[in-house]
């Protein structure tokens, strides 16, 4: 645990996101659920990390706390050099829009906006000008060029998730959080999205943290962090679908 703390100490060098002794409790009294029971974990910059675990193990909760979407009941979270635990809502919102990208499982896009407007929404909220070249690169890599003027309702599920990926990356955030980004997709569309996320890490130097319960999806990552009952339960470097599957089985046993 001390290693983790020292890692977060080295500002901006290695760890893009780090949590120490993170506690999150839902509810009060008898019905209280300890969703995170003191999780300490660091995520290296420029790496693709997957958070895995059985359903109800606290994956989504961890991600929400890491991304500043939810407040924590104990411990701390750092993004880059900034401690985000204790920031007020306004500063958190600013931090999210300036330094974090999101891809959710579903309902990623605003139905009223075109694909292009959706991609640029975050930048617009931040009042930043998009980098035209970067925008073109992302759009072309994701094959969205001829879909830019379409409304979300006119796009397939895979295309919608790719638009969400483009939006997450176009602002060059410090870190991209993805919560089950392929959960609603068929395997081919899912593979496309995962390929893109991996490519953005390998070629473009992005940091991506992805929550998933799918071993195949996890195998795209550089490293898998395993979660069980709100506690860290080991990790796998350079995972394959098989190694993840067997690790999960161990957890279940």
């Amino acid at each position: 645990m001390s290693a983790v703390v020292s890692e977060t100490g080295r500002v901006g060098t290695q760890a893009a996101v780090a949590a120490s002794s993170l506690v999150k409790v839902y509810g009060k009294g008898d019905t209280a659920v300890r969703a995170l029971g003191g999780v300490s974990v660091a995520f290296q910059a420029g790496k693709f990390t997957a958070i895995m675990g059985p359903s109800g193990s606290g994956k989504s909760t961890l991600m929400h706390c890491l991304a500043g979407l939810d407040n924590v009941d104990g411990g701390s979270v750092h993004i880059g050099g900034t401690e985000i635990t204790g920031l007020n809502d306004k500063d958190l919102t600013k931090l999210r829009r300036d330094r974090i990208g999101f891809v959710f499982q579903a309902f990623n896009l605003l139905p009223t906006l075109s694909a292009e407007a959706n991609i640029l929404l975050g930048l617009e909220l931040a009042g930043r000008k998009p980098d035209k070249q970067w925008f073109d690169t992302i759009v072309d890599v994701l094959g969205l060029r001829d879909r830019l003027k379409h409304k979300p309702s006119e796009l397939s599920g895979g295309q919608q998730q790719r638009v969400a990926c483009a939006r997450a990356l176009v602002a060059r955030p410090d870190v991209v959080f993805a919560d089950e980004p392929t959960g609603n997709l068929d395997s081919r569309s899912g593979a496309e999205v995962l390929d893109f996320l991996r490519m953005s890490v390998r070629k473009l130097g992005q940091t991506v943290i992805m929550v998933t319960h799918d071993p195949v999806a996890a195998s795209y990552a550089d490293r898998v962090v395993l979660l069980a009952d709100g506690h860290l339960a080991g990790e796998i470097q350079n995972p394959t679908a098989d190694s993840v599957l067997s690790a999960l089985k161990h957890l279940g046993a």
Binding site: A67, L69, D89, K90, T93, K94, R96, R97, D98, F102, F104, F107, N108, L110, L121, G122, L125, A126, R167
Partner: peptide, 8 residues
């Protein structure tokens, strides 16, 4: 979603 993306 908008709040997550940075709408205050």
């Amino acid at each position: 979603l908008l709040r997550a993306l940075g709408l205050t």
